[in-house]
Simulated assay, not measured.
Amino acid sequence: MSPTAVNGSSTSREHEVTGRTPVTPHGTAPGPGHPVDLQAARAALRLALPEPGSKFSQDDEWCVVAEPDGSWAEYRFHDYDRIFGVRGLYEKIFYDVLGCDSPRFMVGLLNDALASADVPAGSLRVLDLGAGNGIMAEELAAVGVEHSVGVDILPEARDAAERDRPGLYDGYHVADLTALPASEREALASHGLNTLTVVAALGFGDIPPAAFRTAYDLIAPDGWVVMTIKDAFLEETDTSGFGGMIGESIRSGALEVVRRERFQHRLATDSSPLLYEGIVARKRGPLAG
Rank of each mutant, 00 (worst) to 15 (best):
P3W: 13
T4G: 06
N7Q: 09
G8I: 13
S10N: 12
T11D: 15
S12D: 15
E16L: 15
G19Q: 06
T24Q: 09
H26S: 11
A29M: 13
G31C: 13
D37G: 07
D37Q: 14
L38R: 06
Q39P: 00
A40Q: 12
A41V: 03
A43M: 09
A43Q: 13
A44S: 15
L47Y: 11
L49P: 07
K55W: 13
Q58W: 13
D60W: 10
V65W: 06
A73F: 11
Y75V: 07
F77P: 01
I83V: 15
F84G: 04
F84L: 06
R87I: 10
R87F: 05
K92T: 13
F94A: 02
Y95R: 05
D96E: 02
G99V: 10
S102T: 14
F105K: 04
M106T: 06
L109M: 14
L110C: 02
S116H: 08
R125T: 10
V126N: 00
V126Q: 00
A131W: 11
N133Q: 11
N133Y: 12
M136I: 10
A137G: 14
A137C: 07
A137K: 07
L140G: 03
A141N: 01
A141Y: 04
V145K: 04
H147R: 11
D152K: 03
P155Y: 09
P155E: 08
P155A: 05
A157C: 03
A157S: 04
R158W: 05
A161W: 07
E162N: 08
E162I: 10
R165V: 09
Y169N: 04
H173M: 07
A175Q: 06
D176I: 11
L177V: 09
T178G: 10
P181W: 10
S190A: 14
L193W: 09
N194C: 03
N194P: 04
T195I: 08
T197E: 00
A200M: 09
A200C: 09
G203E: 04
F204M: 12
G205A: 10
P208Y: 05
P208G: 01
P208W: 01
P209M: 09
A210K: 10
A211P: 06
F212G: 02
T214N: 02
L218Y: 10
I219G: 01
P221I: 10
W224H: 03
V225K: 01
M227L: 15
M227R: 05
I229Q: 02
I229H: 01
F233L: 13
F233E: 08
T237R: 12
G241L: 10
F242I: 11
F242G: 03
G243T: 09
E248W: 00
I250K: 02
A254L: 04
V257P: 00
V258T: 04
Q264N: 05
Q264Y: 01
R266E: 00
L267F: 12
A268P: 00
S271L: 15
L275N: 07
Y276E: 14
I279H: 00
V280E: 00
V280M: 03
K283H: 10
K283V: 11
K283D: 01
R284W: 01
G285P: 08
P286F: 02
P286E: 04
